[in-house]
């Protein structure tokens, strides 16, 4: 009896003890793999392909970080998380890095004690309905049944949107995108709402994508980005500047095709600093000199990742829009490598 009490207590303590505070960078190096939290499956952003290899836009960010830290883009352990489990997984130390279409909000950054290390996709919440429902605006959705992933910002936006427009709805809480897709296609809900990019990605996997329309309303700002635990600034820096390296690479025209050539040395000092042939940027982060080169070679620069996974030539077919380079009228902008 006494023994079982003690063992039980120790089990609980073990669960509570997960969070190791300092030195995620050292932990990752010592372990030799990066534990990266992703979705349970959202084609284009993070989903396993036919061979079980994870691929997608968020996966690309994970691989870039792994390449920058460990020199190997495949040294990643992907941990599928749901909207509800992702933050606990990160806070408890089960994952080092969360790249899961997560919206950067005040309370998540400040109250939940996380550190967002950039924005890799500027999004907004949209609605998808079957075309034959004949709905043309989200304001016509009075009384509709809405499928919604729980534990997300979309859940809160949805409540606000319907309340401020003084219309009613019936929420159907679901855990994962796959579940939502099944419920939506079975007609158990009239509407599926999540980030517009997620809707486009989900619709692309339908048998008849043309039978479903995205409503014109975008009801929120959803800056999606990767995040790490609060308080480990070295690790936050590594992930922040890895994402910035991908963005800067696009800006400077460094692609996976020409990177080998450029890393021999160029006339542009910023490219040289980025690729480690000039200056000590890598050492300042506690990484090898060619960290950014490895990160870019993992899956290409930001633009390449975008085009390959979710761009207009993929079934998902998202335009760059807000996610174009700042030089082309978008919001994607990196501080200088100096």
């Amino acid at each position: 009896m006494k023994n079982s009490v003690l063992l039980g207590a120790m089990t609980v303590a073990g669960l509570a003890a997960g969070a190791a505070a300092a030195g995620t960078l050292d932990d990752v190096k010592a372990r030799g793999t990066l534990n990266c939290g992703v979705t349970t499956g959202l084609v284009g952003f993070a989903a396993p392909d036919a061979n079980g290899v994870w691929e997608g836009f968020d996966v690309g960010v994970c691989r870039a970080v792994a390449a920058a830290v460990l020199g190997d883009p495949n040294a990643v352990e992907f941990v599928p998380t749901t909207g509800q489990t992702r933050f606990t997984a990160l806070a408890s130390g089960e994952i080092d890095f969360l790249a899961r279409n997560t919206t950067w909000t005040f309370s998540r950054d400040v109250d939940l004690k996380f550190e967002f290390t950039g924005v890799n996709y500027y999004d907004g919440q949209g609605f998808m309905v079957p075309r034959d429902l004949g709905v043309s605006s989200a304001k016509d959705l009075d009384g509709a049944t809405v499928c919604i992933q729980t534990g997300t910002t979309t859940e809160l936006n949805l409540a606000d949107f319907f309340r401020s427009n003084n219309i009613s709805y019936e929420p159907v809480p679901i855990e994962t995108n796959a579940e939502a897709q099944q419920q939506y296609l079975a007609g158990a809900c009239d509407v599926y709402t999540t980030d517009a990019s997620g809707l486009a990605a989900t619709r692309a996997t339908f048998e008849a994508p043309g039978d479903h329309v995205l409503l014109p309303e975008i009801i929120s700002k959803e800056p999606l980005g990767p995040l790490v635990r609060h308080g480990d600034n070295e690790w936050a820096d590594v992930t922040r500047w890895t994402l910035n390296a991908l963005i800067t690479a696009e800006e400077l025209g460094v692609t996976s095709a020409n990177i080998a050539e450029l890393s021999a040395g160029t006339d542009n000092p910023e490219i040289n600093r980025l690729l480690g042939t000039e200056g000590e940027l890598g050492a300042m982060l506690g990484l090898e000199a060619d960290w950014a080169k490895n990160a870019i070679m993992a899956g290409g620069n930001y633009g390449e990742l975008f085009e390959k996974n979710i761009g207009e030539n993929t079934p998902i077919g998202l335009a760059r829009g807000l996610n174009a380079m700042w030089t082309e009228g978008g919001l994607i902008y990196s501080p200088p490598f100096r």
Binding site: L6, A9, M10, V12, A13, A16, A17, G18, A19, A21, A91, K113, R229, H230, G231
Partner: peptide
């Protein structure tokens, strides 16, 4: 054991801020 459990929880909470 209980002391360790509580202490551990408090420490980890403060480590997480």
């Amino acid at each position: 054991g209980l002391y360790w459990l509580v202490n551990n929880t408090i420490q980890n909470l403060s480590a997480l801020g």
